[in-house]
Simulated assay, not measured.
Amino acid sequence: MTVTRRLSARLSPLLAAAALVACAPAVAADATFDAPAAARPAREQGNLKTAYFAGGCFWGVEAVFSHVKGVTSAVSGYHGGNAATASYDRVSSGLSGHAETVRVTYDPAQVRYDQLLRIFFSVVADPTLTDRQGPDRGSQYRAALIPVSTEQREVATAYLAQMRQSGVWNRPIVTRIEPARQFFEAEGEHQDFARRNPQHGYIQRWDAPKVAALRSMFPDHYRATFRSG
Rank of each mutant, 00 (worst) to 15 (best):
A156L: 07
A156M: 02
T157I: 04
T157Y: 10
T157G: 09
T157N: 08
T157A: 14
A158V: 07
A158L: 10
A158E: 05
Y159C: 02
Y159S: 01
L160H: 07
A161V: 13
A161P: 08
Q162D: 10
Q162K: 09
Q162Y: 13
Q162V: 15
M163D: 01
R164G: 02
R164C: 08
Q165K: 13
Q165V: 08
S166T: 03
S166C: 06
S166D: 04
V168N: 11
V168F: 14
V168L: 12
V168A: 13
W169N: 03
W169K: 01
N170L: 03
N170F: 00
N170C: 00
R171W: 02
R171G: 00
R171L: 06
R171E: 11
R171V: 00
P172M: 00
P172Q: 02
P172G: 01
I173D: 04
I173C: 07
I173Y: 06
I173M: 02
V174D: 01
V174Y: 07
T175K: 04
T175N: 08
R176V: 00
R176W: 02
R176F: 02
I177W: 11
P179Y: 12
P179T: 11
P179F: 12
P179G: 03
A180H: 05
A180S: 07
A180D: 05
R181T: 14
R181C: 03
R181N: 02
Q182Y: 03
Q182S: 12
Q182M: 10
F183N: 05
F184C: 08
E185C: 04
E185V: 09
E185G: 05
E185T: 11
E185M: 09
E185D: 06
A186H: 06
A186T: 07
A186M: 09
E187K: 05
G188E: 13
G188M: 05
G188A: 14
G188K: 11
E189F: 12
E189P: 01
D192S: 04
D192K: 00
D192R: 03
F193S: 01
A194W: 13
A194C: 14
R195D: 15
R195F: 15
R196S: 14
R196D: 15
R196V: 10
R196Q: 11
N197T: 11
N197R: 13
N197A: 13
N197H: 15
N197C: 13
P198A: 14
P198N: 13
Q199C: 12
Q199S: 15
Q199F: 15
H200D: 15
H200W: 14
H200I: 10
G201L: 14
G201E: 04
G201Q: 06
Y202G: 06
Y202F: 14
Y202V: 09
Y202Q: 03
I203N: 12
I203Q: 01
I203K: 02
I203M: 03
I203D: 00
Q204I: 08
Q204M: 14
Q204L: 10
R205A: 04
R205W: 04
W206I: 11
W206A: 06
D207M: 09
A208E: 08
P209K: 09
P209S: 07
K210F: 09
K210M: 03
K210A: 02
